[in-house]
Amino acid sequence: MHASDDTNRYQEVLVNPMYLAGTGGTADAGFAPVAHWPHHHLDEGPCQLLVTSPDHRIRIGWFGDDFELWKITATEEAVAAPRWTAIFNHVAPPEIVADLTTALARDYAESDAYDDNARFLAEPSYRWADAAQPLTDAGWTRDGGAERGTVEIVAPDGQAGILIDNRLSGWDDETVTLWAGPPGWGSRSEAVFTARTPSHLIAATAVVMAKPAPVVRERHQIDRQVEHLVTLTPVAPDVSVPSAAEPSVFRAPTPLDVRRTAVTQAIHRAARPSHAAADLRVMAAQSRSAGAVRSRSGGLAPAAAVRLPANSSAPRHGR
């Protein structure tokens, strides 16, 4: 991260490509698609916020102090063992998590109560290409150096990919990994899926990685190992004023303008503590922070700051 004396450390910037933007310190984007589902705040446990489908068959957990930041599972029954699990590490952008939670909310809305044929419980496709379809459609290509029995599809810049393990494995084995960034504890984003994860859910998660749209972050949230791999464009309001001789012309906002505004507002909301019942931010992370984090005013730490444990083990899928 940036040194504390960096005068621009809190400047908002558009980060491109998005998959190298890091977590941003807030989980709002990942929970937004399921904001209407029951929320369970578990401040005393490692899982600080658990969001479940109304029948508890889908569970979305946020572990604010762990290397494995998100754990998402689906089961046939509320008390059954997970049929599949998706795990996102502490560097994974929440915008990528949001693509999976969006697909889960849609699948759940289209299913009947306790429907054994619910799409979020579907068997994965026998074709590995189905999970990677959004990436190959966007021009990502196969890496010929992948290990025997595996397939790896890599982004044009070589800084992201999907690794699919086609070797015989158990149902609980992790067989698909979406990754981005150079190897390293603070620079490599990973999303790992177990063998029975429906292919369409993996593909839905990959969709946003294939999109060129940037996301908003503060400069200090960009790891130094990826600074030279991203384009940072300062987010600044349009302060131009028409002259007296020129009538003011209304310009309709573009989709990018709308996206910038929405994400910027979400970051600002996350920086202001709130105890409202509908608040999706996880306040517990603030009390567990390792040391005080200096805010713009030099006072309180950001309410949704994510603590990264200093003695965590290295990523299991480090490349």
Rank of each mutant, 00 (worst) to 15 (best):
T7D: 10
R9P: 06
R9C: 07
N16F: 03
G22F: 01
G25L: 04
A27K: 02
P33L: 07
H36T: 13
G45T: 15
C47E: 14
T52F: 01
S53W: 02
P54Q: 09
D55C: 03
H56Y: 13
F63V: 01
K71I: 15
K71D: 15
I72W: 07
T75L: 09
V79I: 09
P82D: 13
W84S: 08
W84L: 10
T85E: 15
A86R: 01
F88Y: 14
V97Q: 12
A98K: 08
A109R: 14
A113R: 14
A118Q: 03
L121G: 05
A122G: 08
P124W: 08
S125L: 10
Y126K: 12
D130N: 12
A131P: 05
A131K: 11
P134F: 05
A138T: 02
A138L: 06
W140S: 04
T141I: 06
G144N: 13
G145Y: 11
G145Q: 13
A146P: 07
G149L: 07
T150P: 07
A155I: 00
G158F: 08
G158L: 05
I162C: 01
D173G: 10
D173W: 14
T177P: 00
A180S: 15
G184P: 02
G184Y: 07
F193W: 06
R196I: 02
R196K: 13
S199R: 09
A203R: 05
A203S: 13
A204G: 10
A204H: 05
A204C: 08
V208G: 00
A210R: 11
A210L: 03
P214H: 07
V215F: 05
E218T: 08
Q221M: 14
Q221A: 11
I222T: 03
D223G: 06
E227S: 00
H228P: 01
L229P: 02
L229I: 01
T231I: 05
T231F: 01
T231K: 15
D238C: 01
V239I: 12
V239P: 00
S240D: 12
S240P: 01
S243T: 15
A244E: 15
P247R: 14
P247L: 12
P247T: 13
P247Y: 12
S248T: 13
F250H: 09
R251V: 08
P253V: 01
P253H: 04
P253G: 03
T254R: 02
T254H: 03
P255V: 00
P255K: 01
V258W: 00
V258S: 00
T264Y: 06
I267E: 03
H268C: 00
A276S: 12
V282G: 02
M283F: 09
S287H: 11
S287T: 11
S289H: 11
A290R: 13
A292T: 12
A292Y: 04
S295C: 04
R307I: 07
L308M: 11
P309T: 03
A310F: 04
N311C: 03
S313L: 10
A314T: 13
A314S: 13
H317V: 08
